[in-house]
């Protein structure tokens, strides 16, 4: 008789492998002639229940490759990347990279980016609640001082940069979307994922805007991020960007430069 830990490890190992379960495990089961079939019920559950979670996470991938291919990919993924958390809400984080490594999918090079976008969508869906930045918060900063502040990204924020027309691919595979041909020659796309309230929103942004956002996400001051962006695109229209995105759920707070903060917190500074 095996101790509990050995028995459970043997059981888990066998769930991930197709074919006959190992004799060492079968020897632990009541043998009524159906032991292997009975074990298979658990193996089916493991593959299908976790595969279903993946199908919920990646409806566009499923639509793109078709149900049968998706199930094969899901089965392989579940075996190679069994769930690492106690909830399935965000299961499938490695799916994009996994898809990128499947030789038969090389003709669909955009799939991995689609998977990244779908994962970002669900991550934003479950992200921490936070109110978007408000005009009052911004108006409290003198315009001249705004360059020195940092804009704190909203917890739901993602930006997926892709060399492919990602947003069009995503939109044309939503339920009820009209069928349309998409050419990869349409070129690159950056998809901004936000969740200002409870609804996840997707919108396209320009390369320069994505550069600015990346700088801000990396913790640069507004001034630093703008300077970097102007090097990429000297015609960058900051006012237009701020008009569209300052209050749309991209950001949730303003962080003052540490020296500014010191001054604010200690009004009676010693001379």
């Amino acid at each position: 008789m095996l101790p509990l830990n050995k028995l459970q490890q043997l059981f888990c190992d066998a769930l991930r492998v197709p074919g006959s379960p190992p004799p060492a495990l079968l020897a632990e089961l009541v043998n009524d002639g159906l032991a292997e079939k009975r074990f298979n019920i658990y193996r089916n559950n493991f593959i299908v229940l976790n595969g279903d979670a993946l199908a919920d996470m990646y409806p566009v991938i499923r639509q793109l490759v078709g149900e049968q291919a998706f199930r094969l990919l899901a089965t392989r993924y579940v075996r190679e990347h069994p769930p690492a958390e106690r909830t399935l809400l965000l299961y499938g984080e490695a799916f994009a990279n996994f898809l990128g490594g499947i030789p038969e999918l090389a003709a669909l090079p955009y799939l991995a980016d689609v998977a990244r976008l779908e994962y970002a969508w669900t991550d934003a869906y479950h992200a921490e609640d936070a109110a978007p930045l408000t005009q009052h918060q911004v108006a409290a900063i003198l315009p001249d001082a705004f360059g020195r502040v940092r804009l704190v990204p909203h917890p739901a924020l993602h930006c997926i940069r892709s060399p492919y027309p990602l947003l069009r691919i995503w939109e044309s595979n939503q339920p009820g979307a009209p069928e349309q041909r998409i050419s990869l020659d349409e070129g690159s796309c950056n998809v901004l994922v936000t969740r200002p309230g409870v609804e996840v929103q997707l919108q396209g942004i320009s390369d320069a805007e994505a550069t600015l956002l990346q700088g801000l996400q990396d913790g640069a001051t507004v001034e630093g991020a703008v300077a970097e962006t102007l090097q990429v695109d000297p015609e960058f229209d900051l006012a237009a960007y701020l008009g569209r995105h300052l209050f749309d759920g991209t950001f949730c707070r303003i962080r003052l430069d540490p020296s500014d903060q010191d001054r604010k917190n200690q009004p009676e500074e010693t001379p």
Partner: peptide, 30 residues
């Protein structure tokens, strides 16, 4: 009792035949 967990899809068996039958047919070029 389906065979979902028993099929060999690890590249060594015949079951791994990735036939793409989805909307990817509508995406061209590149």
């Amino acid at each position: 009792t389906s065979c979902a967990g028993t099929s060999t899809v690890d590249g060594q068996g015949n079951a791994w035949m990735l036939v793409l039958k989805g909307s990817c047919e509508k995406i061209v070029g590149g």
